[in-house]
Design a protein around this nucleic acid. Structure first.
Lengths: 100, 100
DNA sequence: CAAACATATAAATACATATTCATATGTTGC
DNA sequence: GCAACATATGAATATGTATTTATATGTTTG
């Protein structure tokens, strides 16, 4: 089965997603939230990042529907938006380090 | 089975790959070469890009071992470097447009 | 409602990078 | 070796964006 090239509009959307995954800081945030929902403060402290920086990145990730946040009293816990996203990240994590 | 967070060095490598996939022009080039090996001139003409721009992008993709080129006389035909890369792109192409 | 806490936003800056234009390198046929 | 073709590279520019600093918004508790 020969794969078809997606139309230009779709490649643009896809590239936008890849672009967001293409920043080391954001990727670390995503992997950290992959294991469990994490509050902004937890992310910042655990990954040694400023609260502001984490919030900025989360906004971008939210905008692309890669993560979603649930408020629990004062804190907001972020997790990957859906199984589609988390599966993809998990796959990537598996592939890292494999020979090719 | 709970996925583990890859160490920071690995996320850096992975982010670098995602970053390269995160440019619309590069992504179009990759999808075009996914169907068949393509010469630089073919890519430039088909995707309406300058020869120089295509060459620049191919250099980056080569550097990350996402594509490889085979010279056939004057032309150089580029294809995805391995099944791992092409599978990932094909998967992504499938997922584009799906609900989530 | 005020104070304390958690998160978000705005502006500024520094840095990265996509694209263009010009030129160089490499390959083939005469 | 020279001309024609195909690809690669270098420098310059313009645009994008990650990070910081400072401040604002929202939430709970007394």
């Amino acid at each position: 089965m020969i794969p078809h090239m997606p139309p230009e509009a779709d490649t643009t959307v896809l590239a936008e997603t890849f672009r967001l995954l293409g920043d080391p800081t954001r990727l670390r945030i995503l992997f950290y939230c992959l294991e469990a929902p994490r509050s902004v403060g937890d992310i910042a402290e655990s990954l040694q990042l400023s609260q502001s920086l984490v919030s900025h990145h989360l906004r971008l990730l939210r905008g692309a529907r890669l993560v979603r946040g649930n408020r629990v009293s004062k804190q907001i816990f972020y997790e990957l938006a859906d199984k589609h996203v988390s599966d993809m990240l998990a796959d990537m994590a598996h592939h890292v380090g494999e020979d090719y």
